[in-house]
Design a protein around this nucleic acid. Structure first.
Length: 860
RNA sequence: GGGCGGUUAGCUCAGCGGUAGAGCACUCGCCUUACAAGCGAGGGGUCACUGGUUCGAACCCAGUACCGCCCA
């Protein structure tokens, strides 16, 4: 490409899709198990096939893309493996809603037809996500795309189920589980969201006279299923009642009063009703006292107990029961509203009903212990480390995991029942015994996504992929699913892979929030669609905005303004590179002879490479983005390009050399930026180098030999001088373009060799024969005399000088205070004392200079 | 109730023992031929509060207040 083809504004839409297609076609993202280089592997946390990518995914994917793009440039055998999970409940819900539009339920279709219907939906919905990933620029290996319901992954599910079953770690039991009466399935503990809801607390008197006992409840309707009242064994108020029976109102049943250690005597009246079939704690009490469990609701939460309440929904039954009790004079107290914690289905927000039912469970204790130990002994590192505690709290106190779901969409439980009640767990290659029927339930989606880091690599076969890429290098995900998902992968990975954890590092990021740090929510109307931003600002700008705010483990606030800022940055890079190309920048190695400006920018480049490399070690994407942003904009664009203009304008060998330095700097800068903003850098880098793709270019090497403190201080001195004089010009109302005559006394200072550059940057003409300065500036030891071509604004100048003088005097006071402090002089380290001494000297000099300048101002 | 994190410029956040920083927003001046998605200059902070440690604290320690998150 030749320069004139680059327009003055970067147009992401023209560049993104073609670049992405070219990358994929060239096979740049493909990984190979026979690649002899160091492996670097990441498995993408699979998005739900039902959903679409939101801005949180955009952050998660951007981070993984940055890591893998850099790893690839560093010469690793790099794998980023994409895929989706089947999201059992969510997907089934979506398809059932579709059916409901036609007045159909899944039962009308039957299991097989329904599942086929879901597969159809999966094709549609999954395709949308893939398209979104391409728009973001995700450099994933599409040839390895996986889906949790694929044949291979299903085989993995069945294999591990059988192995756990045979090891006695999977069992079936009648337990109180979390039940969603709308989804009609069991849920695990973590699929229940607790929130403070307004309810009621009703105190009910059971029994009469001496036998009367008052219990308090937020769920009055469950009293229909009470089979006891419990009190604490040492509670003297009730000692005389223990072992006796009391009549349960409305039912006429007589129930025992039992003593149980788990009753809190300080809560309410100290007596609690016991409903073993509808409350997990009561279930335990029931077990300890051998109480019957009386179920009073069906799977939809409708009362089945005989009597006037039969057929009422649980929420209709509640006031009805209270009213009936009140009519009998049994309501002793009522508190309304009463704030208490209520569990909701994380999928549909329905209030969860504890329900006694027969379900499959994983005995997690040995698995969870191994998962904790792997982090404790450093085989897996959680980053940032503060979040490891949350992980430990969870795995060290994990309850058995209910894995059966009463759904049709998912991996069916590989257990078959014989006519005589035989139970057989069937492995993928086992034969199913004649006449047996399969368990109707499917497995929790997390059961299959827990296998993701190795099932996607071909497990249970010992594939080359598995050998090459497991354990994966790093897992990138939000801290919110540390125990939903990460802990499960740890448990299964360690179990299936002989104690090898699935990842060397777990890098956690935060949630994406709006510009005020508020959570994004549809009802609040502050949701940002990443695809919308990609269209309006470009994929690079979208990514850069997210990455620039991404500090390890902490939330990321973003706003439209910042996306515009990122777009501006991309445009800046675009134009700067365009300028370099217009001036003949070539990247074919550095010249022998370098100017101070050249050595300065190379020194700065070297130091930013080192800074970026260090930040990568700790996943400090904000720091990476920020240092590159400032290096590119403040140092390359604002100063080096301006200095290079002068060097090129001078012609000769220096001009030729400058073109090569420009080429070198932009080549390196674009490569450093590429993982963050892949599209614009690809387009520009191809133009600068004429090579095929930056995707496979090497990551810039950190070269300490380029460090040049001498050049740095020389150019800094030039910058200081130029800034000071610009400030004077601005205060004096001189237009930026207006040329004025000046006399510079630079000899003996660090700026001595740069008069041409200084004059050019400041638009100062040489002082001629008739030069008569109207203003005299002292910047350090440099004297600048200027003919401002008119009367100078004395008031403005006085104000400026007085301000500077006040600052200098404050500094002097502070610093001399320190030097006069014996303790400080005795105890502070030498280098600090030396620094303070230097500051003191500087302050004295500044004050003298500023006072002299003030004195020389004409009196008004 | 238990735990974790936070409180620094108008907003979002860096800084974590030795001269308070960035982006955006704001003010002023500029279409200075790479870029107005830009250039130059500028204003703005008792670093939540109270004690302590230290020659020295935004930074370390203790407590208080408020905010957020996780778990029960």
């Amino acid at each position: 490409m030749t320069t004139p083809e680059l327009p003055t504004q970067y147009a992401p839409a023209d560049v993104e899709a073609p670049s992405y297609e070219r990358w994929v076609a060239a096979g740049h993202f493909g990984a190979s198990a026979v690649d002899g280089r160091e492996p670097y592997s990441i498995v993408l946390p699979p998005p739900n096939v039902t959903g679409s990518l939101h801005v949180g995914h955009a952050l998660d994917h951007s981070i993984q893309d940055v890591l893998t793009r850099r790893a690839r440039m560093q010469g690793n055998a790099t794998l980023w493996l994409p895929g989706m999970d089947h999201a059992g409940i969510a997907t089934q819900n979506v398809v059932e809603r579709e059916l409901a539009k036609d007045g159909l339920s899944r039962h009308d279709l039957g299991r097989e037809a329904f599942v086929n219907r879901v597969w159809q939906w999966k094709e549609e919905s999954g395709g949308r996500i893939l398209g979104q990933m391409k728009k973001l620029g995700d450099g994933v290996d599409w040839s390895r795309e996986r889906f949790t319901m694929d044949e291979g992954l299903s085989r993995a599910v069945q294999t591990i189920f059988k192995r756990l079953f045979d090891d006695g770690l999977i069992y079936r039991a009648n337990r109180i589980i979390n039940w969603c009466p709308r989804c009609l399935t069991a849920l695990s503990d973590i699929e229940v969201e607790h929130q403070e809801d307004e309810g009621e607390l009703v105190s009910i008197r059971y029994g009469d006279g001496d036998d009367a006992i008052v219990v308090a409840t937020t769920r009055a309707e469950t009293m229909l299923g009470d089979t006891a009242v419990a009190v604490h064994p040492s509670d003297e108020r009730y000692a005389h009642l223990i072992g006796r029976e009391v009549e349960l109102p409305l039912t006429g049943r007589r129930i025992p009063i039992v003593a149980d250690d788990h009753v809190d005597p300080a809560f309410g009246t100290g007596a609690v009703k016991v409903t073993p079939a509808h409350d997990p704690n009561d279930f335990e009490i029931g077990r300890r006292h051998d109480l019957p469990s009386l179920a009073i609701m069906d799977e939809r939460g409708v009362i089945t107990a005989h009597g006037p309440f039969q057929g009422l929904d649980r929420f209709e039954a509640r006031p009805a029961v209270v009213a009936a009790l009140r009519a009998e004079g049994r309501i002793v107290a009522e508190k309304r509203p009463y704030l208490h914690s209520v569990g909701h289905c994380s999928r549909c927000k329905t209030v969860v009903e504890p329900r006694l039912s027969l379900q499959w469970f994983v005995n997690v204790s040995p698995l969870a212990k191994a998962a904790g130990d792997a982090v404790r002994d450093g085989r897996t590192r959680i980053h940032p480390p503060e979040l490891a505690k949350r992980y430990f709290d969870w795995v060290d106190d994990m309850h058995d995991w209910c894995i059966s779901r009463q759904l049709w969409w998912g991996h069916r439980i590989p257990v078959w029942y014989g006519p005589e009640g035989e139970v057989v767990c069937v492995g993928p290659d086992d034969e199913i015994p004649e006449g047996y029927t399969q368990d109707p339930d499917v497995l929790d989606t997390w059961f299959s996504s827990g296998l993701w880091p190795f099932s996607t690599l071909g497990w249970p076969e010992q594939t080359d992929d598995l050998k090459k890429f497991y354990p994966t290098t790093v897992l990138v995900t939000g801290y919110d699913i540390l125990f939903f998902w990460v802990a499960r992968m740890m448990m299964f990975g360690l179990y299936a892979m002989d104690g090898q954890p699935p990842f060397k590092t777990v890098a956690l990021h935060g949630m994406v929030r709006d510009q005020f740090g508020k959570k994004m929510s549809k009802s609040f109307g502050n949701v940002i669609d990443p695809l919308d931003w990609i269209e309006r600002y470009g994929a690079d700008a979208t990514r850069f905005t997210l990455l620039r705010g991404a500090n390890p483990g902490s939330d990321v606030a973003i706003s439209e303004d910042w996306a515009a800022g990122s777009r501006n940055f991309c445009n800046k890079i675009w134009n700067a590179t365009r300028f370099a190309l217009m001036n003949g920048a070539v990247s074919d190695g550095l010249p022998e002879e370098l100017t101070a400006a050249d050595r300065w920018i190379l020194s700065r480049l070297h130091s930013v490479v080192s800074l970026v490399d260090t930040a990568f070690d700790d996943f400090e994407f904000a720091k990476i983005s920020d240092s590159l942003y400032h290096f590119a904009w403040d140092e390359v664009c604002d100063w080096y390009l301006e200095l290079a203009k002068i060097q090129i304008a001078g012609g000769g060998q220096v001009a030729e050399n400058t073109k090569r330095v420009l080429g070198h700097v932009f080549d390196a800068l674009l490569r450093l930026l590429h993982p963050l903003i892949p599209f614009v850098t690809e387009e520009l880098w191809r133009a600068v180098t004429g090579k095929e793709s930056i995707v496979v270019a090497p990551w810039p090497a950190h070269d300490p030999a380029l460090a040049d403190p001498g050049a740095e201080s020389e150019i800094e001195a030039v910058q200081n001088l130029v800034t000071e004089v610009r400030r004077f010009r601005s205060d004096q109302g001189l237009k930026p373009g207006q040329r004025v005559a000046a006399r510079l006394s630079l000899s003996g200072t660090a700026t001595a060799a740069h008069e041409d550059a200084i004059r050019s940057l400041l638009r100062l003409d040489p002082s001629g024969e008739t030069f008569t300065p109207t203003a005299r500036l002292a910047v350090g030891t440099v004297i600048v005399e200027i003919d401002t071509a008119g009367a100078i604004d004395v008031a403005a100048e006085r104000k400026r000088l007085e301000k500077d003088l006040a600052v200098a005097k404050k500094e002097q006071a502070q610093v001399t205070g320190k030097l006069g402090n014996e303790q400080f002089m005795a105890k502070a380290p030498d280098d600090v004392v030396a620094k303070v001494r230097a500051r003191a000297a500087q302050a004295v000099e500044d004050i003298a200079r500023l006072e002299a300048q003030l004195a020389s101002l004409p009196q008004v």
